Amino acid sequence: MDVFYVHPTTFRSARNEWNQRPGDVEADRWTDESAILRQASAFTGCCRVWAPRYRAASVNAVISSTHRDEAFALAFTDVERAFDWFLANVSKGRPFILAGHSQGAKHISDLMQKRIDGTALQGRMVAAYIVGINLGQGEFGPRRFKSIPVCSRPAQTGCALQWNAVLAGSDLEKKLAPYRAFYTAQYGTQDGWEPVCVNPVTFDSARPASLSAEALGAAPGTPGLGPMKPLRAGAVAVRCDRGLAVVHLAPGLDLEPFPGGTMHLHDIGLFYADVRANAALRVKAWFSRLRRN
């Protein structure tokens, strides 16, 4: 089994550079140790992970209203070519998982829409872990993803899942307002605007809340250079509330939120061992169904 993983925004150049430079040693190291080590490696329990280099939109581009769309478009051309290479040279007809966080999740969602939804490749997609963006519930259906559903059960395959972590006590309405506005501008309606939230511990729509005792292991510390610290089990309680994954953290995890309580940097690290176990479960379920058919 193979995973096609796309990393988030990691190019932090102070200059007016809109996309990550190929071969930039410093940027590549930061990407590898702050993101790939702490996110993509969660899938190595079940699969071979392929994490391509690409000209990701820079931090400057992401915060720029003038250059953002152009930078994302250029980055996606790299992702799409990398996916073609992955299919031809890595996957070679085998099933696969898609995974990405933040900017990487945006590219994965665009790839899923353009290249997988309703095509023969959909039958090979075990799941898509699209983490840290704001896909609305109404995008799964006629508006965007016409035949790929949201994952509602832990062992379901051929589906997509998403969550955005925020600290308990955060102003949810303040965080949700821009999601609602973007969705309304995109689709001309507020119907279905609330973000998809799949609880990243239970992975079960019937269990939107979980106790800290159920959490298999979080990665302590803010992502950065150097190895991961040992995982801590039983350290995160989480509930889906209005489309956001609201978390209560045990003391000592040393996870720094963004202003307002957004835990964006830790969307996968908070649930590292849970994601690892769930990916393995979905792979097992996929092969079980293949044998029965």
Results as ranks from 00 to 15, higher is better:
F145Q: 05
L121P: 00
P149S: 05
M112Q: 04
G136R: 04
I148Y: 03
Y183D: 02
F145P: 03
I133P: 01
W163Y: 10
A177D: 15
R180A: 11
R143D: 13
I130Y: 03
P178K: 04
L135P: 13
S147M: 10
K175C: 09
S170N: 01
G132W: 08
N164G: 07
I116Y: 04
R180H: 14
I116S: 00
Q137L: 11
A160V: 12
A128E: 05
R143P: 12
Y179N: 00
P154V: 10
G132N: 12
Q122S: 10
D110A: 08
P149T: 04
E173S: 04
N134E: 07
R180I: 14
L111K: 05
S170T: 10
G138Y: 13
R144K: 10
G141E: 09
L111A: 09
P149I: 01
R143Y: 15
D171N: 13
G123E: 14
M112L: 10
S152L: 14
G158D: 09
C159W: 08
A160R: 00
K114D: 14
A127F: 06
C151V: 04
Q122V: 09
V126T: 10
D110W: 11
L176N: 08
R153V: 14
A165Y: 11
E139W: 02
T184L: 03
S170E: 07
V131T: 13
G132I: 14
M125K: 10
E139P: 00
G169A: 08
G169Y: 04
G136P: 10
A127D: 10
A127R: 02
V131Y: 06
S170V: 08
V166Y: 06
L167E: 12
T184M: 03
L167M: 11
A128M: 07
A165G: 12
R144N: 03
Y129M: 00
Q113T: 15
V126M: 08
D117E: 11
R153T: 15
A181H: 07
T119V: 05
V166Q: 09
Q162N: 07
K174V: 12
K114I: 15
D110G: 02
G169Q: 09
A168I: 07
I133G: 00
L161N: 01
S109W: 03
T184G: 01
G118S: 08
T119M: 03
L111Y: 03
G136I: 05
Q156W: 01
A185W: 10
Q122C: 07
R180F: 12
G169P: 06
